[in-house]
Write a protein that binds this DNA or RNA. Structure first.
Lengths: 204, 204
DNA sequence: AGCCCTATTGAATGCTCGTTCAAGAACCGG
DNA sequence: CCGGTTCTTGAACGAGCATTCAATAGGGCT
């Protein structure tokens, strides 16, 4: 179908991997050039500067959220609540695959870039919003299995919090257990909410 | 009582602020020197290199956990469960004080340092462990107000997860609301646990 | 005062970084 | 095959970085 990827795409793909593996500041333009087998001029012909590469990377994460992350995680899982934990299971797999060195690319960049350009910060926020939006779809689909008084937005953000906190601790301790216990606590939280809704279905 | 702080202490204090404000990689030795009004030789007389400054900073956080963070937060709060939320309230205050740019120094360093020296990683882990240990004291003091089957270690780590995730999202969106909703979800979690224990006090 | 050890000075070093740009190659419509 | 545009080359540049070190100052002891 499509031929060899163009220069821009090659740069973005290489930068995604490098920023994820080493962080933004610790990734040099030279790193990107050597991985893509390009010369400096080619990169600067496509991007005005390093920060624009970062922006393209964040846009790629935003645009590929479902294709690269959510849809594969949800494949074969129909129950909306289980979809939430299927997404978390995908992160567990990533942690194991990287010998507990995995870090969420967005979360790591969000904490690394202390004085980020507004454009960059907006893209970080948009990535979080997209992720939370995917969880929101599940919560909406769960309908009245959740108590009517529950703040679904807060709950969806809480799922992201659980993922980010679990990933952070698992990596720092080099032990998936920290991620697993976080997910388990979240599971208890959902179980209690679902039980409460089942107990008194019409109460606020 | 004590006179002017010695060179080592001045460096560590300046580095704590700078690493927190700009991150480790983005803080130069020159930054530390200009803030402390020292010369390069004085710093290298005390520390072999930049990483050793980081190690001293992490040791200072570890050793000052109660004095600088926990004890002030718990002052006037006796109920063990409320102490947990008093600690979180202190982070909320820090977020507001910094116009929603606050980042947990340990969490930020943990995500920034991708290929950290084992000594550094251990110190990051120890800082997390100390924080979780403070929460564990509360959970132990809560005694049978919590259901007997609850994994207290997991629950204490979950409190840290809530703090880190809330701080991360609040800073990215520049909005305390993200932190507040996370704490509120954790409050619901505790309320449900406490209610369950009160309902059937002797059940596992 | 003389001595020794510790502490400080600050210029110099070598390296890496992001970025530039003049020169040349490749491509394409006519 | 020409003329113009787009893309690529890779050396060069200046700034900033962590680190070094010979020279100098200070402080305590006899």
């Amino acid at each position: 179908m499509s031929g060899a990827p163009d220069v821009r795409t090659r740069i973005v793909m290489a930068a995604m991997e490098l920023f994820w593996a080493k962080g933004y500041n610790s990734t040099s333009i030279a790193d990107i050039l050597s991985r893509t087998q390009l010369n400096a001029g080619s990169l600067y012909h496509v991007f005005p500067g390093k920060q624009d590469v970062l922006i393209a990377v964040l846009e790629a994460y935003r645009d590929g959220l479902y294709e690269n992350l959510v849809d594969p995680a949800w494949e074969g899982v129909d129950d909306p609540v289980e979809r939430i934990f299927a997404l978390l299971a995908r992160y567990r797999w990533l942690i194991l695959e990287t010998d507990c060195t995995y870090g969420c690319p967005i979360g790591s960049l969000a904490l690394e870039l202390h004085e980020a350009d507004p454009v960059v910060r907006d893209l970080l926020a948009v990535n979080f919003t997209g992720w939370v939006g995917a969880i929101m779809k599940c919560l909406d689909a769960a309908g009245d299995r959740l108590p009517t008084g529950v703040d679904k937005q807060a709950l969806a953000e809480f799922v992201l919090t659980t993922m980010e906190g679990g990933v952070m601790q698992a990596r720092t301790h080099r032990d998936v257990g920290y991620f697993d216990r976080g997910v388990s606590a979240l599971r208890d939280h959902f179980d209690m909410l679902l039980a409460r809704a089942a107990r008194r279905p019409e109460t606020v």
